[in-house]
């Protein structure tokens, strides 16, 4: 292989990698449900740590943590979904996302795995009921027998009051 060819091959690999990342989702559990967020917005996963409370934020923002000099607000996903609060245990983790240039940590019951879900395996969440026009649920990813609820992560941090589509919370 000539040098040029090698470079081309590498470039193609990189492109391919990017494609892969687009279809990769980090899945996590809230109760019995499995949710997924695109891996591209995930910066890191850290264990539960000491939370410092902050005034003037919605109830689902539990406070902030200082992660190596970065202040990261934490969102309790259960509270965001208006589910009942649950005490944190040793499986509770924080998934740190970078959304619109700002970090936010999601407190979830536990992380599951990273899944590759092709676009044609994701069913649109349109018409799923619930009054929300811009849905929090982007789609339902079919993985074998199971279903991962793919979240529209930008919506998590939007000000819009959430009402979970009935079809999902049922």
């Amino acid at each position: 292989m000539t040098k040029d060819q090698a470079m081309l091959a590498e470039a193609e690999n990189l492109l391919h990698d990017d494609d892969n990342i687009d279809n990769m989702y980090l899945t996590f559990a809230i109760g019995d449900e499995t949710y997924g967020v695109p891996i591209a917005v995930v910066t890191e996963i850290v264990g539960m740590q000491r939370i410092m409370t902050v005034p003037d934020v919605p109830r689902y923002i539990k406070g902030v943590i200082n992660l190596r000099g970065k202040v990261i607000p934490l969102m309790d996903v259960r509270l965001r979904f208006k589910l009942e609060e649950r005490a944190y245990d040793d499986r509770t983790v924080i998934i740190v996302l970078e959304l619109s240039g700002s970090p936010v940590g999601l407190i979830v019951d536990r992380v599951s795995e990273v899944l590759e879900i092709a676009d044609d395996h994701i069913d649109s969440a349109r018409g799923m009921g619930g009054g929300e026009s811009q849905g929090l649920v982007q789609g339902l990813g079919r993985v074998g027998e199971n279903v991962a609820i793919i979240l529209n992560s930008e919506m998590l941090v939007s000000d819009v009051e959430l009402s979970m589509p009935e079809a999902v919370s049922a």
Partner: peptide, 15 residues
């Protein structure tokens, strides 16, 4: 920044 931007009467966070 982000969800903290709505906090009123504050210059920022102090580490």
């Amino acid at each position: 920044s982000g969800v903290l931007a709505q906090v009123r009467a504050s210059w920022g966070c102090a580490l």
